[in-house]
Design a protein around this nucleic acid. Structure first.
Lengths: 209, 209, 209, 209
DNA sequence: GATGAATGAGGCTTCATTCAT
DNA sequence: CATGAATGAAGCCTCATTCAT
């Protein structure tokens, strides 16, 4: 029916794979279309047969990340666990997903930068990018806040928790991600446990109970 | 005989101020030297009298941030508080510092991106930038880990805490910073409390004690 | 699938032709890449598809001259003439070659200047250019000195001639070239005879023999 | 009467000295006004108190050379020698003058280049420089041709010599100069003898007479 | 006069994008 | 579809010249 459709989509993915690899290596700003083409083993002009332009590659990278995020969120919602366990699962899922695809994750650095620049549209700057990382974190916070509130009413978590604490949990994940991205000596994969433990049980010594 | 007197250092600061404002508004990648000059109210070429080039402006921004960071760390070390209090003070100090200078802080986005790109210098890329954001986080983690260990031996904090937990604490700060930078609806200044509370006491309900 | 076919070498030559014309007209220092592009009938940026940059054009011009020189030297070596005849043939060959391509020859002015400036690299100047005009004259002198010595042993030329006299012969050629380049009223093509006559037989009246 | 006049002229000379040194070292094209000022030990702007602009420095260099040339020509004219001796004296004088001031002489390279570029004023190029090196060689040739003709009528030189041979003699000088400028291994000072010997008596063996 | 900070035109080079083959 | 040569807008940086002190 549409025999070429499959090829076309696959080729698009190949190019995006290549782009993600190069972005991870050199950063988006320093990556030329030609670099992506070379990495993908095709000609420069061919990239434009599959992507609108340079920024579309970054946007596509964002889409991939957004998909993975959505999956993580969906996984965390599924299952019928107590809130604290769901929270731990969410943290683990997110960290595992991020650590599993280091190149794709590295693109986050550029997305933050590009997205942040679009933040304040005061003067006549370039049009804001077609992706909204803020929304991703918003969704995370929303789910976490939901879990926190649920956990509060169920008794597993403190009562009164909400958005601020949700932001902190999300921050713990993203902050570890950031340190990992910026410093190879930080091992993200091993931080899921400490994140969960710290956020759930805190660092303070407990009265012997 | 009567050389024109100009306070070079002050002028340099003025230009850097301008650069930081523009970087915060448009992002480093989208900022042209001319934008900085315009913001500073001088001619394009004059920027080069005080800075080597575009990247030197970013590096100078980094220096400012590094200075602020060093100050925060120094403040946290001073004082003779118990570890948990020192930790809370560190978080508060860092958040206050960051929130106090939103433009400067926004430059972090670009520093992460630029610094991250330099991370993996496999192929023949441009020479890595002259700043090392990783070192900043390393210092934070080192201090926090120190406090955690001290707190452990003093009994105020759990025993056995170390680098991983330090990374989580630093992550909580930087992750909140990130969410703030990327999403204006997040209010960093109000997150210092939740960060401290969450990290120190956790989110789980305590057995009535 | 159907890659556009372009004879890169030929296109490169075309651009070099254009560059040589413009260099001859305005001088290297006053020639902008855009001038070359306009002369070649292409866009500014296209020049960079074939040449590294401005100086590469000059270096390519040097290569052309060096090739012509090598040909002249080879021609002079071939043939089995007495030394004095070979010398005359060399002079004629060199002058004919130079006069035949006035534009290319005019580039010598810039090569002398550029090459001379590179001579004394005491302080931190830019790296010396990739061409060595001195070598060209060295080769000429070497061949001429060879002929002079051969002519001496054969009896056609004075005995004891060597490098200094070779330098004078080469100088006679290059000096005429210089005057021609600097003053259009000097006709290089007609100076081959006087050069040969003067150098071989001198200007002094001979005792009637 | 004009106490400052002397100082002013002396200062001007100092700056020109400095300029000549730098031109010799880096070439005119690569020399910035600031380089000259630094070499002279004054401020950039002060150069403009003594020279119209950058090109005026080169023109002043030309003037110096023209003066030296005029002196050489005058010396050669004075004295009441036979033509062949006068010719030898001219060559020696010219070579001695050039070899005595290597830096000033090195500027010739740039003068040739700049003067040559002005040669062909076809399109809308920059206005031709305010100096005319062609004229210098013209004067040399004129004097030499005069001597040749005189020598011819006096019997010391061949009859029928004229402008072409004059060009060759001048070429022998300037060509040696060129080789020296371009190749430090050529020793100009020692070439005066060979130039004279070659041009006057030729290279060919004489019939025993 | 002297200074050197400031200016801004000018030229180099890069690279996203187009398009003829 | 694929290619890669060509384009030209954009931005960096230099430096001759000016001018307020």
């Amino acid at each position: 029916m549409a025999p070429k459709r499959v090829d076309r989509a696959a080729r698009r993915e190949d190019i995006l794979d290549a782009a993600v690899r190069v972005f991870a290596r050199r950063g988006y700003a320093a990556t030329r279309i030609e670099d992506v083409a070379a990495e993908a083993g095709i000609a420069k002009g061919s990239v434009y047969l599959y992507f609108e332009g340079r920024e579309a590659l970054l946007a596509a990278g964002f889409e991939r990340i957004a998909q993975r995020s959505a999956q993580v969120l969906a996984d965390a919602r599924s299952g019928d666990r107590p809130a604290d366990e769901a929270l731990a699962a969410l943290v683990e899922g997110a960290v595992a997903m991020l650590a599993a695809e280091p190149d794709l994750t590295a693109v986050m650095l550029d997305l933050w930068s590009a997205g942040g620049a679009a933040r304040r549209t005061g003067e006549a700057g370039p049009p804001p990018p077609a992706f909204d990382i803020a929304a991703v974190y918003r969704e995370y916070r929303t789910l976490v806040a939901e879990l926190l509130r649920r956990g509060g009413s169920e008794g597993a978590l403190r009562p009164g928790l909400g958005e601020p604490e949700a932001a902190v949990v999300v921050a713990a994940i993203e902050g570890c991600l950031l340190q990992w991205l910026v410093d190879p000596s930080v091992d993200l994969a091993r931080l899921a446990g400490p994140i969960t433990a710290t956020c759930l049980d805190g660092l303070r010594a407990r009265p012997v109970g």
